[in-house]
Design a protein around this nucleic acid. Structure first.
Lengths: 246, 246
DNA sequence: AGGCGCTTGTGAAGGCGTGCACAAATCGCG
DNA sequence: CGCGATTTGTGCACGCCTTCACAAGCGCCT
């Protein structure tokens, strides 16, 4: 697959260089690679081998090479990958070269934490607005930002184009909020409410359900408990990394 | 697959009835089904068709039937699934029949929110302890629970067996915390720190990285923006549910 | 009692993702 | 200049998961 090979900054040939089709599984791992690369860059590394980067990101080296090959050929055989170049490439693919505006709806326990989450800002996301339906919370200042009433959403979206909406409301309100977000042109939603959202086909929804994660772990606890009850269970072989499916 | 067919409460034949081997993908969906079932039960439904339950859980009906078939035959042809029975079954499989003790390590923005997250308690998880390494935070009372110093972990784990440890520390501290948790016998870890954890093979780790979720959405924003720039983009066909890979 | 409609459970096919193993390519050194 | 060490990029096979399509089973109505 000998795709384009533009030398320096990405996106030079016209406007967009035939956006590559990446497998979803690969996309989900790119941020992990990016984090590992930043870490390596801070440590002063100029190049990394697939083996080294794979270890830092916690994946198989063959998988990493295949993932990166989907973006084009940015490695040098016998040497490895140029850290800085790869960072630029992945950030470009992920659209992190432009800072994207995020709003958080629902300033409860979780929304409060999200509003102040440092991990967002460090990745080029700007939390530009906080909303809530509860008038008692409106006006509260969190992390230097005042909470607005949800009815102000339209006005604020008009001032600044909101790329991503984060829903941290109770599940009963989530569908309403999603509809409002869609109405003002938001096409990406991160949903923390434990419910199914119905949105138009051009809108992407990702769901994070903290209780579900615990339940999956609970299953494995249950499984391990019932297995050690039966067979000879001294399976303390040496080993390292294990993780139950992502 | 005509497995066991115990009529009433699960786990009657001896201690554990030949724990079924479920695909990981199925396990990850069971909590979603469970939530939908609870919702239906509150609405007074006695039975559900696979079609109805699938819609409530946001999945394909064939997938749902296959998932449920892995647990055994708990449906009635021509009628559907008995809601109450299915709830019991799934809760048993997930190990939610016993309440599991959870501890949260790291009482920053996120840990604070997790400590008070209502979704945990409602699913049978008890947050029994909060830890932090910062002495300034030790003693702070969150949601009626005092923050303990991380050095107290061993003592508290001795009093009450901790099933699941939640790591909400900065990434630099996460590996240390994981080691401590493993040392006191915790075999399931939910990691919110953006880093790779190294644990023994009998310990399950699930990772939740909020920034990664945003980056994946950012990718799709980038993709959509570059696609609408080229072709005739009035793809406003009717449609409903769309979600980018879980 | 018999037939009809509805719904589950599942065989089979296709697609996606993973991991191995190796050829191709590059660098450094003698 | 040539050779060997090293590392990428990828063809291939395997296994998991999803989806379709349908037979088997159940209840209800006549």
């Amino acid at each position: 697959m000998s795709q384009h090979r533009h030398g320096s900054t990405p996106g030079e040939a016209g406007s967009v260089p035939a956006f590559p089709e990446l497998p979803e599984a690969t996309i989900a791992r790119l941020p992990e690679y990016l984090r590992a690369l930043h870490h390596l860059a801070e440590a002063g590394a100029e190049t990394v081998s697939s083996e080294g980067l794979a270890a830092a990101a916690g994946v198989n080296s063959a998988k990493l090479r295949k993932d990166l090959s989907h973006l084009g050929s940015y490695g040098t055989r016998g040497v490895g990958y140029d850290v800085a170049l790869l960072v630029d490439q992945i950030e470009y693919i992920l659209g992190l070269d432009k800072s994207r505006a995020v709003c958080v709806v629902g300033v409860g326990n979780l929304g409060h934490a999200l509003a102040g989450y440092a991990g967002f800002a460090s990745r080029g996301f700007r939390v530009v607005a906080l909303f809530d339906a509860d008038h008692n919370k409106v006006g509260e200042v969190i992390n230097g930002m005042a909470v607005r009433h949800i009815s102000d959403l339209e006005a604020i979206a008009a001032e600044e184009s909101i790329a991503i909406g984060v829903i941290a409301t109770p599940p009963t309100a989530a569908q309403n909020v999603a509809d409002l977000l869609v109405a003002v042109g938001v096409t990406s939603i991160l949903n923390f409410a434990p419910c199914v959202l119905s949105v138009p086909p051009n809108v992407d929804v990702r769901k994070v359900d903290l209780a579900i994660e615990l339940q999956i772990l609970s299953f494995h606890e249950h499984r391990k408990a019932s297995l050690t009850a039966l067979p000879g269970g001294s399976s303390d072989t040496a080993g390292d990394q294990e993780a139950v499916g992502s």
